[in-house]
């Protein structure tokens, strides 16, 4: 294929990107959200969300409590459907297919899109079994392969050296920070393309938080990462792009340094400087 053609295709893929994008590091769009509305019963929780998320980038979502940022994150793997009264309209395309279409199997989606939760939620099983759970439910039974997956996943989350001698210990014996990194490793074991993180460090001490942030920087080499955070400095430190949510709407979505140094909307500036929220 000629370079011109490749470029043309790439340009087409990033059509939603504005003129500031650097053409030489064109990245594929993983998620493209168009006109997404979401209701919890009568409550209009997400209003006309338009947002694209790219591979090998960290996208941070900030905003005050109740602004819909976690709801949006959970819509990306349809976890939001665990609440029975949820209704949606609009579309979210993941690799070209609308995931809100009922014909899109959630199990397929969630296999490709991993999630890390606010509170570390390891299973009450051994460290090994926690990691092996994902591959096992997807039908891998070979002990040797499972061993390899466990080691690679723990290495991927930079926790192998700490845990390699206690793989059969119960995961509940780990510290909070270790548990959260174990959960990240567990998520890697399914080999997702995207990792959704819902305030992953809000229950952790500063040192563990730093380790998770470093880990996120490593992971973005291979994964698209979407992270919801209450911590403004965290968003500024680790993300490439930041979306500011307020009352269910996106107020601003741009490159992180733009949002933090030169926000276009007054409300974004007020929130970032701590005047509200």
């Amino acid at each position: 294929m000629s370079t011109v053609m490749t470029k043309a295709i790439n340009l087409k893929l990033v059509r939603n990107e504005n003129e500031r994008s650097e053409p030489e590091v064109q990245k594929e769009v993983v998620y493209d959200t168009k006109g997404l509305n979401l209701w919890y019963g009568e409550t209009h929780a997400l209003k006309n969300i338009n947002m694209d998320i790219k591979e090998k980038e960290v996208t941070a979502i900030i905003g005050p409590s109740g602004c819909g940022k976690s709801t949006y994150l959970k819509t990306l793997n349809r976890m939001v459907e665990l609440v029975p009264i949820v209704k949606t309209s609009g579309q979210i395309t993941y690799k070209g297919k609308n995931i809100l279409d009922k014909s899109f199997r959630v199990e397929d989606l969630r296999t490709q899109v991993g999630m890390v939760f606010q509170k570390a939620n390891p299973f009450p099983k051994s460290i090994y079994e926690n990691i092996a759970y994902g591959p096992k439910i997807h039908g891998i039974k070979n002990k040797k392969i499972l061993d390899e997956i466990v080691e690679n996943s723990l290495r991927g989350a930079f926790i192998w050296d700490e845990l390699k001698d206690r793989l059969n210990d119960n995961a509940y014996g780990l510290s909070g920070g270790q548990q959260q990194r174990l959960c990240i490793a567990r998520c890697l074991a399914v080999e997702p393309n995207v990792i959704l993180m819902d305030e992953p460090t809000s229950a952790l001490d500063p040192k563990s938080t730093l380790r998770i942030e470093e880990l996120v920087q490593e992971l973005k080499k291979d994964y698209a990462i979407v992270i919801v955070t209450h911590n403004m400095q965290q968003a500024a430190r680790i993300s490439d792009k930041t979306a500011f949510f307020l009352n269910g709407e996106i107020i601003e979505y741009d490159k992180t340094d733009h949002i933090f140094n030169n926000p276009a909307d007054e409300r974004t500036g007020d929130y970032i400087s701590g005047r509200f929220g």
Partner: peptide, 15 residues
Amino acid sequence: VPGNLSEASYGMGAT
């Protein structure tokens, strides 16, 4: 049984 355990399982594509 805490809901966050089943969430973790669903989150990995379990039925």
